[in-house]
């Protein structure tokens, strides 16, 4: 990694340096992911093929699978086969389904992406007004009970894990009221509960970050300057305060987005949503290593992608953070 000042001198713009640094980091992360996913199977104690097929499998089947997975080849050959397979979009064949892993993933990936992105949007759209309003109200100290109530509800939403919330939503809204179907995917009404279960916790978390950051900004001297101009509340909060919490909110938003991506594993399992998340658990229990590698790889790439998107958004929306980082 090149040192930041040298890079800054060579490139000129601190914003560009920031973007380049983050791209560089993403590339290194990608390399770490690729190597880890390959070695994940090597680290499995004992014989992965025997583990996958069970102790009673006939020797011929075991040997056939050995042949197919290429586990007897030298490590270097295995790794280069793995990399060249990746380049050609070939992740091997699933042991349980006897189908190419790439095909299985590409069928299911759009579902997972839709679920995560919609939940993220719901979380962000809900979090900002909540966070700003609660911070302004808390600072004035005029609605103590209401503030306490709202922060209590947010605290509970943060504390309840999404799989438990999913179960609770099924128990109340689906079985209790019959309002939404308890499982499935495809129609908007089937999407309501999964999105709600996935978005509620992150929304509450993000609202708290916005709340805390807002409180910090409301105490800054430049907000006092703005108050001394006797600006109306709308300008005070939207124009003067909000832009100054964007960096922190975006960083927290990155954490939320990454968490949402991982959260799809649990939520898809509860609501039997046919995404890649509901596949990972069965593939781990079945020790279907090519499929596990594929799913873990896709999830890792989603996380890296989400981080990169947030970093780029930071560089575009908040040039000062780029300077501070560099």
């Amino acid at each position: 990694m090149t040192t930041a000042p040298a890079l800054a001198a060579a490139v000129g713009s601190p914003r560009l340096v920031f973007v380049l640094q983050r791209l560089g980091r993403a590339v290194i992360s990608l390399a770490v992911v690729l190597v880890s996913v390959f070695f994940m199977v090597q680290f499995v104690p004992g014989d992965p093929v025997r583990a996958a097929l069970g102790p009673t499998a006939p020797l011929a089947t075991v040997n056939a699978l050995r042949e197919q997975l290429g586990v007897d080849l030298p490590l270097g050959t295995q790794f280069s086969n793995y990399l060249s397979g990746l380049l050609h979009g070939d992740l091997g064949t699933s042991v349980t389904a006897q189908r190419p892993v790439t095909g299985m993933l590409s069928e299911r990936l759009p579902t997972t992406l839709t679920l995560a992105v919609v939940a993220f949007l719901v979380a962000v759209v809900g979090a900002f007004p909540l966070g700003v309003a609660t911070a302004v109200s808390a600072r004035s100290g005029r609605h103590r009970l209401l503030d306490l109530g709202v922060s209590g509800v947010l605290g509970v939403l943060v504390a309840v894990p999404n799989f438990l919330l999913a179960v609770l939503l099924i128990a109340t809204l689906s079985i209790g009221l019959g309002a939404f179907p308890p499982a499935g995917w495809g129609t908007p009404s089937e999407a309501v509960l999964p999105v709600l279960a996935l978005a509620a916790g992150p929304m509450a978390y993000l609202a708290r970050i916005v709340h805390v950051e807002m409180l910090r900004v409301l105490e800054t001297p430049y907000l006092t300057t703005a108050r001394s101009k006797r600006l109306p509340g709308r300008l005070l909060y939207l124009r003067h305060a909000l832009p100054n919490i964007v960096a922190a909110a975006l960083t927290a938003g990155g954490v939320v987005l990454v968490g949402l991506v991982a959260g799809t594993v649990l939520v898809e399992t509860v609501f039997t949503v046919p995404g890649i998340g509901s596949m990972i658990v069965s593939s781990i229990t079945a020790k279907d290593y090519p499929l596990i590698q594929g799913v873990v790889l896709v999830y890792a790439l989603l996380v890296l992608g989400a981080n990169l998107v947030i970093d780029l958004a930071l560089a575009i929306l908040d040039p000062r953070s780029a300077i501070a980082e560099a």
Binding site: S29, S36, M40, V258, G259, V261, A262, G263, V265, L266, I280, I284, V296, Y299, A300, V303, L304, N307
Partner: peptide, 10 residues
């Protein structure tokens, strides 16, 4: 930068 669930699954 990876969530705990992904690392734990790994």
């Amino acid at each position: 930068s990876f969530p705990w669930l992904l690392l734990a699954l790994f």
